[in-house]
């Protein structure tokens, strides 16, 4: 199966590459299929590319590379929805927003990580309702503080 992307041109995919977001993601409730593409070989960044809309892609990053204290818990319902039985099945990413012309002030949304079951290829953006995190945390500052921007 081929998908068209604005960034990478046409990509050949197999069904196994597709991650299913049953509920879409907040703001994009009709987007149920994505693929994860590396930004480049050595990069900590990745693209979450819509398998349906060629222009729609999000930059994500492994949060633990930038925020060493980052942690969150999944509740029973969330574990069930993603069919997670052990932490080995889980990959977590956070969405990155890059202000125009100012790459160094890019921010990560730590209050809503994207959690993926790497075996079943299910994904979900989880809202950490009770956490101290916010939607904008600078990647390039010393530690995770509860003073994010909102």
């Amino acid at each position: 199966m081929k998908i068209k992307t604005t960034r990478f041109g046409e990509i050949e995919l197999v069904q196994a590459d597709i991650i299913t977001f049953e509920e879409g993601i907040p703001g994009f409730p009709d987007e149920h299929e994505f693929v994860i593409l590396p930004y480049s070989e050595d990069s900590p960044f990745l693209y979450l590319q819509s398998a349906k809309q060629d222009y729609l892609a999000f930059i994500m990053a492994n949060p633990f590379l930038f925020f060493t204290d980052y942690e969150f818990e999944l509740d029973e319902l969330q574990l069930e929805e993603l069919a997670i039985r052990s932490m080995e099945e889980v990959a977590s990413y956070v969405m990155i927003t890059v202000p125009p012309h100012d790459v160094k002030t890019m921010t990560a949304n730590l209050v809503a990580p994207v959690v993926i079951n790497i075996h079943t290829h299910q994904g979900k953006q989880i809202v950490l309702e009770k956490s101290k995190y916010q939607t904008k945390h600078l990647l390039f500052s010393e530690a995770v503080s509860s003073k994010g921007g909102n």
Binding site: F28, Y39, Y47, F58, I59, M95, V127
Partner: peptide, 26 residues
């Protein structure tokens, strides 16, 4: 909170359109 996440996702979806060069970040 939910609305802030929607707004941030929309910004994130738009910002990845910029010809951003992330290759030197690491």
């Amino acid at each position: 909170l939910y609305e802030a996440i929607i707004a941030e996702n929309k910004k994130a979806g738009a910002s990845s359109h910029e010809n951003v060069d992330l290759s030197d970040i690491l």
